[in-house]
Design a protein around this nucleic acid. Structure first.
Length: 983
DNA sequence: GAGTTTGAAACT
DNA sequence: CAGTTTCAAACTC
């Protein structure tokens, strides 16, 4: 038990989540009315947040709409005022057994008539509910465990055990910044911003029991002695309400019986209220909601002799959420059954929360790692490091549990912030006397603030060997709740993109028994495959490529500018192709959401290696594939920053002020704004301090490693050169810059002499095209291109730069500020309304004096014509102008080896030709060829590097063929034209 | 490279 | 939302 806490503490960045001690759940009932008010407010906020999260809007973060358990605050009661007894309390949830009496004071749980404990689903919400901003659900992880009946409830250092009647134990870990000690927790408690965690209880939970003092009766009321916050009177009974008794025999999948008796405090809720709210004395609210698509971890068949429903946590979607909120004197559990249950009590507050989606719909995929199986709902992608035992030993819990070694497994959820870290701990607890059987799963969301992440562990069926899985939310923090029914590839993609968490360290412990996913792992936003699939994108890339090839000869300033854009587009597209070569199958127009970056956990185990391994997601709804670009800086637990999703940053430099081409900003954004935002919001001062410290350490490690690897030292305040992947795009970039034809550029690096060129290309990739020169903004405002593009300053000439790892807190604050001002601040300014449409400036320019014919004008800079959206005066940047938005068409022209500057007629001709040759069919065929290579490589288990190289090679070959074909046609046409002219 | 111009971002 | 200020890039010399 204690050991688990120790493990958590050992985690660096992820501040160990404070255990959710019993006192956290307790609160004097006296405060009822105000507390209710609070609850209502919170609930409303939560609902609101889920409904419209504007902050994340820019990030396209999916809204969290599922019922979950949320810890609104990370506040932790100081133990000083609480009776010691309280600390050891556990919460038992009894599904059946109506009419359970509430336990007063120390009373232990009353056993329900037919105890049936289903499952517990723990969702992490990174952002405080209070903020309507992005509602991020960190994880939908549903852990099914069978508890050993009659087990002893205990509170781990970090974890609070919730014991179900049948002996299952749930571990709830609060995320308090770096504090294992209560005192610290207390201090933290003050901070309003805290990570939110959601626990989703199964629909049938009728009763919740807090060991020793709190019991939740089936009737819905539970009273228990409530420990007072520091200085407050202790042993005030807590009331749990809203719990509806289960129908006898209600299995996991079965429909729960409606609850009949509302608690005194409970307000009659609409029928089928599905929300369970528990509020702790320290003001935490736990909501138990049903969520449709839980992820099942360690799902295993229930222990023999036990009814399925009881023995194992059922995956069945649960409704109702438990929210630990701010000090409310009560703890409420409200349960509702989705379908048929009659009205349950729901306080006004809770009522708002309930938005459960239909469970069951989601497909689940089974992920196996190191002999462990994780069942994931289709929407979620969980990726476990292939070798649990791999590297880091961070997770070690010395202590009682006897989990000395740990394995870290990275779990990536497709949803917002989709990365979670899972730690599987071998639990010796059984030996310790705790009833909890072998494995418990803990999920923490590190998002927002690393510290905020709370963990919850669910005991695994006894049959399973004792393992504890701790899921720590990634910084990105925003893990969307998985809604099985609604899940779509696009949704998942968008969700992922929303949180571009950049750095996370995660350590993989050598012991496979433990899987710890730490927030420290670096997460890289990856473009969704849809982007790749997008015809438009492909065409763009093709055009860009051809353009770059043709434009290489250009000399004039204007051409230079054009080429810059072209190169940018090309690089972006290539990156896109390389990075997102995953889910090609979805040809539907991804829309803006689809372009969101995906976060990839950088596994520590794999060094300097980019993996292109698809997740083991088998579910149809699940995102097709996610390719992880992994790079490690070396040592265990080292935090490292990853740039631009493994694609070299060099070419990605943004054009001035948010120009994105029609390639999404994601490509240029190594950092996850969403995640940063979330983290920031939840970060407490202590967390921030710790975070900074960790970052500094990580940075130092990075530098050291880079130095060791003969990498040039970063300059000044900028970060050292970020690790770049040894992949092709860089080559392409440099080659393109050098004027090589694309098809040459794309050729795989030849051995021997060719390798040198490749090395040069890589070197070229490592330098960005543009460097800011900010002097007053500290690079923390949108004035700064680096910042605006979500990039760290690197090799810039800026002064007092805060846009680096050393000032991540400030940076996150700035990001949030920007998003507060403009939720779309980090969205691409220039997009194409529809696939195939011309790129347009979303906001329009406002030029007064430049006539929109200078690069002052964002439209002109992006080579797009001004539109009616623009407020420019004296605009001359018209659509029909030859110098606008035409360079994207001259790629084929360049292929003709024509070096003269095309005139308007030429451009029209080129445009027609481009349409002639770069048809959708051609583009699709090209993509399919690339995809086929990926698939083939995957099947063959070929190295990622090889796969990437070949994909790019395939692209190059395809483009080459297209160009050659176009050239031949053009020659023929010219010949015909000449003949005609002669005649 | 210094100074000016420009327009987006930030602020009021 | 409009006006003003601030800012950094683009531009000019």
């Amino acid at each position: 038990m204690d050991t688990s806490g120790g493990n958590l503490d050992s985690l660096d960045d992820n501040t160990p989540l404070p255990e959710l001690s019993f006192e956290d759940l307790l609160e004097p009932t006296e405060d009822k009315s105000p507390q209710h008010m609070d609850i209502d407010a919170l609930d409303s906020e939560d609902e609101d947040a889920s409904g419209h999260d504007m902050a994340n809007d820019s990030l396209h973060t999916p809204q969290f709409k599922k019922s979950t358990i949320q810890i609104l605050e990370n506040k932790r009661l100081s133990t000083s005022g609480v009776a010691p007894v309280l600390k050891t309390h556990a919460i038992k949830v009894v599904t059946s057994g109506t009419g359970l009496s509430s336990l007063g004071g120390t009373g232990t749980l009353t056993t329900p008539v037919k105890p049936q404990i289903t499952d517990v689903k723990i969702l992490n919400k990174l952002k405080p509910i209070s903020t309507s901003s992005s509602s991020s659900i960190t994880s939908n992880v549903k852990i099914v465990t069978t508890a050993t009946p009659g087990g002893v409830t205990k509170t781990l250092n970090n974890l609070t055990q919730i014991k179900t009647p049948d002996g299952r134990i749930l571990y709830v870990q609060k995320s308090t910044p770096g504090t294992s000690t209560p005192a610290k927790a207390a201090t933290v408690a003050a901070s309003p911003t805290s990570g939110i965690r959601r626990l989703v209880a199964p629909p049938n939970i009728q009763k919740a029991m807090l060991s020793k003092n709190v019991t939740i009766a089936g009737a819905g009321l539970v009273k228990a002695a409530v420990p007072v916050k520091t200085g407050a009177t202790s042993s005030v009974p807590i009331t749990l309400k809203g719990i509806t008794p289960l129908v006898a025999g209600g299995g996991v999948g079965g429909k729960p019986a409606p609850t009949t008796s509302p608690t005194s405090n409970a307000v009659a809720a609409a029928p089928s209220t599905k929300i369970h709210v528990v509020r702790t004395a320290d003001g935490k609210i736990i909501k138990i909601n049903q969520t449709s698509s839980p992820v099942l971890l360690n799902a295993k068949p229930p222990v023999a002799g036990v009814t399925p429903s009881t023995t194992s946590v059922a995956i069945s979607p649960t409704k109702g959420s438990v929210v630990l909120g701010k000090s409310v004197g009560q703890v409420e559990f409200k349960t509702g059954t989705p379908a048929a249950t009659p009205v349950k009590q729901a306080t006004a507050t809770t009522g708002t929360v309930s938005s459960a989606t239909s469970p069951g719909t989601s497909g689940k995929m089974l992920v196996q790692s190191g002999g462990k199986q994780i069942l994931v709902s289709s929407k979620n992608i969980i990726k476990l490091s292939p070798k649990p035992g791999a590297t880091s030993s961070i997770t070690n819990t010395p202590g009682g549990q006897g989990v000395s070694t740990s394995g870290l497994h990275a779990v990536q959820l497709s949803g917002k912030g989709g990365v979670q870290y899972v730690r599987v701990l071998t639990s010796n607890k059984g030996a310790a006397g705790t009833t909890a059987a072998g494995t418990s799963v803990t999920t923490t969301s590190a998002a927002g603030t690393s510290a905020s992440a709370s963990t919850a562990a669910v005991p695994v069926p006894r049959a399973l060997p004792g393992h504890r899985i701790t899921v720590v939310r990634s910084q990105a923090g925003v893990v969307t709740a998985t809604s099985p029914s609604t899940s779509k590839a696009t949704t998942a993609a968008s969700a992922v993109s929303a949180a571009p968490a950049q750095r996370a360290n995660h350590a993989v412990s050598s012991n496979s028994n433990k899987i710890i996913m730490r927030s420290l792992g670096s997460i890289v936003p990856l473009p969704s495959m849809q982007t790749l699939v997008s015809k438009r994108a492909l065409g763009a890339s093709t055009n860009a490529a051809t353009k770059s090839a043709s434009s290489s000869s250009g000399a004039s300033g204007q051409q230079e500018s054009s080429r810059k854009h072209r190169l940018t587009d090309l690089n972006m597209q290539l990156k896109n192709l390389a990075a997102s070569s995953g889910d090609a199958s979805d040809s539907s127009d991804p829309g803006p959401e689809a372009k969101k970056p995906r976060f990839v956990i950088m596994q520590q185990g794999s060094q300097q290696q980019r993996s292109l391994t698809p997740s083991s997601n088998t579910s149809p709804n699940a995102p097709k594939k996610i390719y992880n670009f992994m790079k490690t800086t070396g040592t265990n637990g080292v935090k490292y920053m990853i740039c631009n999703s493994g694609v070299p940053q060099a070419s990605t430099s943004s054009m001035r002020r948010g120009y994105t081409g029609y390639v999404d900003n994601k490509l240029r954004r190594p950092l996850s704004i969403a995640s940063q935002q979330a983290r920031f919001k939840q970060m407490t001062p202590q967390q921030q301090a710790k975070h900074l410290q960790l970052q500094a350490q990580a940075k130092q490690r990075i530098r050291q490693q880079q130095l060791q690897s003969a990498g040039g030292p970063g300059k000044g305040n900028t970060l050292p050169t970020l690790p770049t992947l040894p992949t092709k795009p860089p080559q392409v970039t440099k080659a393109a810059a050098s004027g090589k034809p694309l098809f040459d550029i794309l050729k795989p690096p030849s051995t021997g002499a060719g390798s040198g060129a490749a090395a040069d290309a890589l070197a070229g990739m490592t330098s960005r095209r543009k460097h800011c020169n900010c002097s007053k903004s500290q690079c923390l405002k949108l004035y700064c291109d680096c910042f605006a593009n979500g990039e760290f300053c690197q090799d810039c000439t800026c002064k007092d730069c805060f846009n680096n790892l050393d000032y991540e807190v400030e940076r996150e604050r700035a990001i949030r500020s920007c998003l507060d001002r403009n939720p779309s601040a980090f969205k691409p300014k220039i997009t194409a309304p529809n696939s195939g449409d011309m790129r347009l400036h979303n906001k329009g320019c406002n030029c007064k004096r430049s006539g929109c014919l200078k690069n002052y004008c964002e439209c002109y800079e992006a080579k797009i014509p001004c539109t009616s959206i623009c407020k420019c005066v004296g605009c001359r940047n018209m659509e029909d102008r030859p110098d606008v938005d035409m360079d994207s068409l001259d790629g084929l022209y360049g292929a003709k080896s024509t070096r003269r500057v095309p005139d308007e007629s030429d451009k029209h001709t080129l445009k027609n030709r481009s349409k002639m040759y770069l048809t959708d069919d051609v583009i699709e065929a090209t993509i399919m060829c690339m995809i086929s290579r990926i698939v083939m490589h995957e099947k063959q288990g070929m190295p990622v590097e090889d796969t990437e190289r070949e994909v790019m090679e395939e692209l190059g070959e395809s483009l080459n063929q297209i160009i050659l074909f176009a050239r031949e046609k053009s020659d023929t046409t010219a010949y015909v034209d000449e003949s005609n002219a002669a005649s």
